[in-house]
């Protein structure tokens, strides 16, 4: 395996809301390797978005990063992203680590042209001297994200573009500074099915072209199977299982992963019928003690209620947090 670019350890984020403290993610640890596509998978509300945002301290009040570290190995050495001050982390956001958000319709400021918004991202990181120069460069960027007629599109306002086009603009903004890591948070969920494949393909092409690392957040296992190298499965704010795509789809270990694969058509093996996982996602204000999955787990034992399972390496690069192993 190649060297890690990101080492996340014990990342914990809590939201202090009116109803109580929401333990959105707890002790999340994983590595991301240079040049790969790393997928974070899980149901809505399992904390995958929070995890991705916490990597660069993008957590707003009432949320707070309680503990953990995110070691980033860049060309200039290694830093803990969570220890940086506001200005230092700002310089990393958008230039070294860029984001693509879920909903392209609301990711862009409606009052500025798309060219301006791409240019702004380059200008604040000193990649171009002025917005004007940035807008000229934005034409090339729009071309590289396959937007037809970029010379005139650059002057368009977001509402004049379709959803797929907007997402291309968002991706363009993301890659404008050729970042080392591109975090794509459900980049295709808000788009038409026909556009989804194109966008994923685009992201993958760009990854190869810029030699970047992609962290893909999705609830769509089909997307994962197609694009990811390695996968982390999250459940209720914790990592359940990490492994290569092969390992996860062919040999799932965690009962949750197994259930998940049975609940959707598995792209790698043929299944006779689909099964739902019994029960519902737990409330994260008062999560179940021990393993958070135990109330829904068909193999639950006494120990599952009491002890939080640690991530254990079962085979090479295949980790699972379950008392069965």
């Amino acid at each position: 395996m190649s060297e890690p670019i990101l080492e996340v350890r014990n990342l914990t984020v809590h939201f202090y809301t009116y109803a109580g403290i929401v333990k959105a993610i707890e002790d999340v640890s994983f590595d991301v390797y240079k040049g790969e596509t790393f997928a974070l998978v899980g149901e809505t509300g399992c904390g995958k978005s929070v995890t991705s945002r916490a990597l660069t301290q993008l957590i707003e009040s009432p949320g707070r990063i309680v503990r953990g570290s995110v070691i980033y190995h860049s060309d200039k050495g290694s830093v803990d992203l969570l220890k940086l001050n506001e200005e230092e982390i700002r310089e990393i956001r958008g230039s070294e680590i860029a984001y693509i958000f879920q909903d392209p319709h609301s990711s862009l400021d409606p009052l500025y042209t798309v060219g301006y918004q791409i240019a702004e991202g380059m200008e604040v990181h000193g990649r171009v001297k002025s917005i004007k120069e940035g807008i000229q460069k934005a034409v090339d960027i729009l071309r590289s994200v396959l937007i037809p007629d970029p010379e005139s599109r650059v002057k368009n306002y977001p509402h004049e573009l379709s959803g797929g086009m907007k997402q291309r603009v968002v991706i363009g903004t993301g890659i404008a500074n050729s970042p080392k890591i591109l975090i794509a948070d459900e980049p295709t969920t808000a788009l038409d099915v026909t556009v989804q494949a194109q966008i994923l393909e685009l992201i993958d092409d760009l990854r190869k072209k810029y030699n970047a690392t992609v962290i893909l957040i999705t609830h769509n296992l089909g997307v994962v199977a197609e694009t990811a190298d390695r996968v982390a499965v999250m459940y209720a704010g914790k990592i359940a299982e990490i492994g290569s795509v092969e390992q996860i789809f062919k040999n799932p270990l965690h009962p949750y992963t197994k259930g998940l694969l049975k609940a959707v058509p598995n792209p790698m093996t043929k299944v006779e019928r689909l099964d739902a996982i019994p029960g519902t996602v737990p409330n994260l204000i008062t999560p179940p003690g021990g393993c958070r999955f135990h109330p829904r787990c068909p193999f639950a034992m006494e120990i599952c209620k009491k002890k939080v399972p640690e991530l254990k390496e079962i085979e090479d690069g295949h980790f699972v947090a379950c008392h069965l192993y």
Binding site: T56, L58, E60, E86, R90, E91, I92, R93, G94, S95, A98, Y99, F101, D103, S106, S107, L108, D109, P110, E120, G121, V124, H125, V170, T173
Partner: peptide, 15 residues
């Protein structure tokens, strides 16, 4: 949401 995206782009607070 676009404000969050601006922050993710690394745009300074005042901007």
């Amino acid at each position: 949401d676009y404000i969050e995206f601006l922050k993710a782009k690394g745009v300074p607070k005042l901007k």
